[in-house]
Amino acid sequence: MKNIILTFLILFSLCAYSQEKTEYIVDRNGTGDFRTIQEAINSVRTADPRGLITIRIKNGIYKEKLVIPPHVTNIKIVGEDRDKTIINYDDHANINKMGTFKTYTFLLSGNDITLENLTIENSSAELGQAVALHIEGDRVVVRNCRLLGHQDTLYTGRDGARQYFENCYIEGTTDFIFGPATTWFEGCAIHCKKNSYITAANTPQNIKYGYIFNNCTVTVADGVTEMYLGRPWRAYSMTLFMNSTLPKGIKPEGWDNWRNPENEKTVRYMEFNNKGKGADTANRVKWSKVLTSSDAKEYTIANVLRGCDNWNPLTQ
């Protein structure tokens, strides 16, 4: 009898779960299911039996320091309008000596997360490192989003984690795309706000792929005339710009060794089939590489991001 009752309770629970909502609305004006984005994230359970949870965010400015913890997975957060759905905070590294990695506006640690149609902004003045989006998760997709900040706008964290950015706008000043993750940028606009460095990859020696920018457009603000494509945060950093448009403001040498000639022996800095006034490779540093057409065939989304689970972000 006890087994029959237990079975009934389990079936009842599963039935109840199946009838629960899998889509929520966030509206700061109070017309949705939640007024804050964090409340909606907190409603997702560990290994949630409902499957994919979608959180839709109405237009507005959400002054929140968001966290998706590691146990929250398989969710999609979608803004109503990329330019009008804004997540904003303004911490920087020199507030109470918090350091770079506590400055995030949005910390995303869970796996299998998709962000769409959002502006994520660190609106701090130029007073130190100030991260807008900090990602530690694997199999993360960011589509049609704006990432706004100055120094260290986007941190792609966690060795070997895979992240895919499509049709995004990313702006900053110094090292504003940095970290160790394997990250593909497809059709993104990269805007440089002052003379400095776009990337500071930290690719581990044992990880084959770091940053790949494909079909991207790099732009520079007025007065920017000396921009580097990247410098190595650590030895073995890997960055490739291919099929992209590079402006006049890119320095002829292209890459910097971060004041350490030893980095020149290990970095993996490459270019292929770029165009624009900054794409001339004749005066690039000798320790970077221009790929041949045969070399470039290796660099596909399938090869770079598949991992051991054959992940394909184009199906998400």
Rank of each mutant, 00 (worst) to 15 (best):
M1E: 11
K2P: 03
K2D: 13
K2V: 10
I5Y: 11
F8N: 07
F8I: 10
Y17P: 07
Q19M: 12
E20N: 11
E20I: 06
K21I: 09
K21H: 08
E23H: 03
D27M: 01
R28A: 08
T31K: 14
G32H: 09
R35G: 02
Q38D: 05
E39P: 04
A40I: 07
P49Y: 05
R50G: 12
I53H: 09
I55P: 07
G60A: 08
I61Q: 13
Y62R: 11
L66I: 14
I68R: 08
P70V: 11
H71N: 14
V72F: 03
V72I: 15
N74G: 01
I75L: 12
V78T: 14
G79S: 10
D81H: 14
D83T: 15
D91P: 02
N94M: 03
M98C: 05
T100H: 07
F101K: 15
F106R: 07
L107I: 10
L108H: 02
I113K: 04
T114R: 15
L115I: 03
E116M: 15
L118I: 12
E121V: 13
S123Q: 12
S123P: 07
L127K: 15
I135F: 00
E136C: 06
G137K: 12
R139N: 15
V140Q: 11
V141G: 00
L148K: 15
D152E: 12
T156Y: 06
T156P: 04
R158G: 01
G160N: 13
Y164H: 00
N167F: 08
C168N: 08
E171C: 12
G172C: 06
P180A: 05
F185Q: 02
C188A: 07
H191T: 09
H191M: 07
C192L: 13
C192I: 15
K194C: 13
N195P: 11
Y197C: 04
T199G: 03
A200I: 00
A200E: 13
P204E: 09
Q205L: 06
N206R: 09
K208M: 07
K208F: 01
Y209K: 05
Y209G: 04
Y209L: 08
Y209Q: 03
G210E: 02
Y211S: 01
I212N: 02
V220Y: 03
A221V: 07
D222N: 11
V224Y: 07
T225G: 05
M227L: 13
L229A: 02
G230V: 01
G230A: 03
W233Y: 14
Y236S: 03
S237N: 10
M238R: 10
L240D: 00
M242Q: 08
S244G: 01
L246Q: 01
P247C: 10
K248H: 10
K248G: 06
D256Q: 10
N257D: 15
W258E: 15
R259G: 12
P261L: 06
E264C: 09
V267D: 04
V267Y: 05
R268S: 08
Y269W: 04
N273V: 01
N273Y: 00
G276V: 00
K277T: 01
K277Q: 13
T281N: 14
A282F: 03
N283Q: 15
V285E: 09
V285Y: 06
W287N: 01
W287V: 00
K297I: 03
E298H: 07
Y299D: 01
I301L: 00
A302Q: 14
V304S: 00
L305E: 02
N310Q: 14
N312T: 04
N312D: 14
